[in-house]
Write a protein that binds this DNA or RNA. Structure first.
Lengths: 159, 159
DNA sequence: TATTGTTATACTCTATAACTATA
DNA sequence: TATAGTTATAGAGTATAACAATA
């Protein structure tokens, strides 16, 4: 192994994250919903209704892409378009009941799967993962555009 | 803390991983290559030439999808189709020089970005992340099909 | 007949550019 | 003119079903 004395071995880090990423990507066989769609619903759930353009920025996609995504979400009763009182140009998107239920089911399924996988680890390995969660959460709090960490660790989408 | 009674809080775990996943998904602005494409190239690099159908299974996509992906990789000089000596039906896919170089550049860029992000953490947070890497690597070693952990922890390609 | 891969078709998801409606 | 959103168009990426070639 090449792991030696350096503080944080970049390649060990990046390789592990790559592999973890690939694993997480395969954990949703039953969910016929895209990553961006799930993330958008999550943003709507935690942060409440948002303008379509705000959602586009938050999810790191273009406005036309978000227009289409919202159209699909609306067609599937996962979200709703609402009018903005005071500005006729603005479209406000809000979570629909179907979206809330889908998030719940999806979260449940993924949690169950992760717990199952965690069960295959040794106790000290589990402890190491749990101990790293706060730091990983902070690490994950990078904004779409720039490379800085967000101020708060909470998943609340600020603004 | 949560390291006590019920061991691993499933929702803390799943939420953190979701957020980490979303972060990692946004770390490749310069790479105009899909996740599956990158993963396929990585598989070819670490495991050597493979049958097209083997690649499809390894990456968790259908055979037609892999056919198209390989066609794009070949068009972009990232991989090559070769004949199988002895079985005329089989297509063997191997990494091309362009693919090797792309992997290198991609790995470099992502490592640099992750190191940059790690630098924003406190020392003890960095330590917690590094301490969890072996366990995370094991966690990531889930096979495409079933839900079990692979026998060997380290896919250790590296360089 | 079984296996390996490709082609045909359709849908999601994304981007850029052009357009509409409102401010 | 500027802003918010949509439509038009193109391409990647995926799936299922039908097909061709080889074993």
């Amino acid at each position: 192994m090449t792991s030696g004395g350096t503080d944080s071995d970049p390649y060990l880090l990046v390789n592990t994250f790559e592999r973890l990423f690939a694993m997480l990507r395969r954990i949703h066989p039953d969910q016929h919903i895209s990553l961006t769609a799930a993330s958008t619903l999550h943003t709507l759930e935690t942060g409440g209704p948002r303008r379509l353009s705000e959602l586009a920025v938050a999810e790191g996609v273009t406005q036309p892409a978000m227009t289409q995504l919202v159209s699909r979400l609306e067609r599937d009763s996962l979200a709703q378009r609402c009018a903005h009182p005071g500005d006729g140009r603005v479209v406000v998107v809000r979570l629909a009941d179907g979206g809330r239920e889908l998030l719940r089911a999806r979260r449940e399924a993924r949690a169950a799967r992760l717990v199952e996988l965690m069960g295959a680890l040794a106790a000290d390995e589990r402890a190491a993962v749990m101990a790293a969660l706060p730091a990983l959460d902070r690490l994950a709090a990078v904004r779409a555009g720039d490379g800085r960490l967000a101020a708060a660790a909470s998943s609340a989408p600020d603004r």
